[in-house]
Nucleic acid binder design. Sequence first.
DNA 1: TTTCAGTTTGTTACAACATAACATATCAAT
DNA 2: ATTGATATGTTATGTTGTAACAAACTGAAA
Lengths: 166, 166
Amino acid sequence: MSISTELSSPHNHTNCIATALNTATQLCFERGVQLTAIRQQVLELIWENHHAVKAYDLLERIKPLQSAAKPATIYRALDFLIAQGFIHRVESLNAFIGCCNLKTAHEQLLLICKQCNDVEERPANAVMQSLAQEFQNAGFTVHHQAIEIQGICATCSQLNKDEEIA
Amino acid sequence: MSISTELSSPHNHTNCIATALNTATQLCFERGVQLTAIRQQVLELIWENHHAVKAYDLLERIKPLQSAAKPATIYRALDFLIAQGFIHRVESLNAFIGCCNLKTAHEQLLLICKQCNDVEERPANAVMQSLAQEFQNAGFTVHHQAIEIQGICATCSQLNKDEEIA
DNA sequence: TTTCAGTTTGTTACAACATAACATATCAAT
DNA sequence: ATTGATATGTTATGTTGTAACAAACTGAAA
Ligand SMILES: [Zn+2]
Ligand SMILES: [Zn+2]
Ligand SMILES: [Zn+2]
Ligand SMILES: [Zn+2]
């Protein structure tokens, strides 16, 4: 697996990584919390692409850097990164992705491609507004939203069509 | 735990159970699939209330009826009930609830109360429509949706207010 | 600089969730 | 009787996540 990604909108992923790391560093400084070596390494591993990453995969991949790493090592780092909003947990996959909208508080809609495994995070303002209305109607006080859609992304759909023709 | 439930809209839960069981029986007959003793017992256990139920809790509770029950026993029954649309898996809880809208094909919005553990299933047509639009915009082909909202339900909110006053 | 509190990490053990693989049983149609 | 489809029994294992306590680190107050 190279650093490249199948994310539907083609992009320079080096930028994604740089932005994510720089912003995390900046926010940790502002908040007076520590982006320790372990936490930064986990964040970097998650950002290698736009796939959802499993905790135990991270554990295997961090061992060359942190030979003492155990499950708790990873889960603690993940807890921290989630608390800071740097990553999201994908409930329906038991996995984790880097947050693409670090700067703005947001509730995310996740489009999960079952073919290429990319996860796209979309603001989906219209959806969020109709959701807010629904909560009002129900008298429900929201603490956390998980909106996770599984299917086939635009890129893979197009690829599949091309293959049918060929 | 009695048969009663804290579901926000007060209701006669005996009706919920009867409807769920009768409809499941009817649909299995129509579809030529078997609602075996194990499958029906699991469905009944899930329908004891509107809480999300864990697989291993079901395992403990079915053992008096099925002394040979093992994890696979439960997970097979759950797979069947999900495939038939009789129950839903709650991804963010690793748990299961009975479906309240058996008759109509539907995508569900789940309101999960962290205080009383009830899960309310809402059609939320406006939300579903704006979601559909978002999928169009993204060129995304949907296979499965999980829309799970954690928070405090209307009933618990009201109870909490009452306690503050008292 | 010592001391102390708060935070982070190391380490062991275990809990909770889920599936693979293969054997056995059931039952209806040929 | 044989066969094929479905369901269940059984054992083992894989995957995901946490509890609990000890040790190390960090930075500021005494
Ligand atoms: Zn990228
Ligand atoms: Zn794809
Ligand atoms: Zn009910
Ligand atoms: Zn409640």
